[in-house]
Simulated assay, not measured.
Amino acid sequence: MNIGLDIMGGDFAPLEAVKGLHLFMNEHVSPANFVLFGDEEKVRPLLEQFNLNAPNISVVHAPQVIEMNEHPTKALKEKQQSSIAVGFYALAKGKIDAFISAGNTGAMLVGAMYSIKAIEGILRPTISTIIPKQDGTAGLLLDVGLNADCKPEHLNQFAILGSLYSKYILGIENPKVGLVNIGEEEGKGNILAQGTYPLLKENNQINFVGNIEGRDIFIDKADVMVCEGFTGNVILKMAESFYEITHQKGIRHEYLEQFNFENYGGTPVLGVSKPVIIGHGISHAKAFMNMIKLAAKMIDSNFLDKMQESFKS
């Protein structure tokens, strides 16, 4: 298992990325090899500082960094020695099995789409987010921003991808799928929702339970919640604000603590042929550690093979 890490990606990199690797190494006896992409002059001293000179950790020199405000496609073309570009080259060539970055989200998405491609049969890859449920379980919401405009066929595939992820990564045996809508009854909603409902209802690869409303997002009505990226991103940002506001006001509760994104690390791009995990730009060590955990789990579970098998037909 070879896990690639963009050591320069994120507002607090490379320090927090190295600290995250250090946390992972301290907690796990892992057979994984780690390939770090970044500026050797900045990375090597940190590896020395945290005693990370193990034989299973190597550094690939990538002197350039794609900044957060740069245009993704243009930056990838012009900065071919950037940590993201070099990392995707290694992923495409099979030198690493997964690639992680908390850097420029757009560049990560473009790299995933054009370096390793979508799995055959998948119309559009998607990104998801974990939604903490009131009962302590975790739901999955997708899409949350990659596909702002969708067709019913896209949402139907998102439901399959979300079900597979919930089963093999989150450990939910028969995940319930709900369509995010403005009413529970069949026939409610806009043209997209009305067109999607019958596809989900007839899809024998999922456990469809019907429409869910905004009030159902945080309760155990559905494990996989499907919508287009515009709605999903609004829900995601609203959920993130719960944690920020309660912490600003000094409110502490075990349920609200679950809204801390660092507990989940990052989100995988579902539908591409190799694991690509995107972290929040403000990720600290805990988030990097959890992104590494997720990458290892995706590789160990053969999740990509199961996804390819589901879309063969």
Rank of each mutant, 00 (worst) to 15 (best):
N104K: 05
G106C: 12
F99M: 10
N104W: 08
G87S: 03
G87R: 01
D135L: 09
M113I: 12
G87A: 03
V144T: 15
P132E: 07
K93L: 05
Y89N: 11
L109F: 12
D143N: 10
I100T: 08
I96T: 00
N147S: 06
A138S: 14
P132S: 05
G121L: 14
K117I: 03
M113Y: 11
D143F: 06
C150P: 09
G121W: 15
D149I: 01
I131S: 08
S128E: 05
D149H: 00
A112L: 00
A92R: 05
G106V: 06
A102H: 12
G103R: 00
V86H: 00
K95Q: 14
K93C: 01
L123S: 11
G136K: 05
L140F: 13
L142A: 09
A138G: 08
A98G: 10
K95I: 07
T126H: 06
I127Y: 09
A112V: 03
G103V: 02
G139M: 06
G136N: 09
I119Q: 03
G121H: 15
A118K: 15
K93W: 05
I127H: 01
Q134E: 15
L91D: 07
N147R: 00
H154F: 07
A98D: 14
A102E: 11
V86G: 06
S115V: 04
T129V: 15
A90K: 00
L142Y: 14
T126Y: 05
A98R: 06
S101D: 08
G111D: 08
M113C: 03
L123D: 13
F88E: 03
S128Q: 03
G145T: 07
Y114T: 15
I96C: 02
G111F: 02
H154A: 00
E153M: 05
L142D: 15
A107Q: 06
D149A: 01
G103T: 07
L140E: 13
D135H: 08
K151D: 14
C150D: 10
Y114Q: 09
I100N: 01
L140H: 11
A148L: 12
P132H: 02
A92G: 07
K133C: 11
K151N: 12
G111K: 02
H154R: 00
A112C: 08
V86I: 10
H154G: 00
G121N: 14
G145D: 11
I127L: 07
F88T: 04
Y114I: 10
N104V: 11
I131R: 02
I100A: 04
G136Y: 14
P125N: 12
K117Q: 13
L140D: 15
P132I: 03
A102L: 07
T105R: 01
E120N: 13
P152M: 02
I127A: 04
G139A: 13
T105M: 01
T126N: 08
N147P: 15
S115Q: 07
I131T: 13
V110E: 03
A90T: 02
T126D: 08
T137S: 15
V110Q: 00
D149S: 02
A85D: 11
D135C: 03
K151W: 10
A148H: 05
D97Y: 01
A102N: 10
L141I: 13
G145C: 11
L146F: 10
G111Q: 06
I116S: 01
T126F: 04
S128I: 15
I127K: 04
S128C: 13
A102P: 14
L109V: 14
L142T: 14
K95G: 04
L123V: 08
I100H: 04
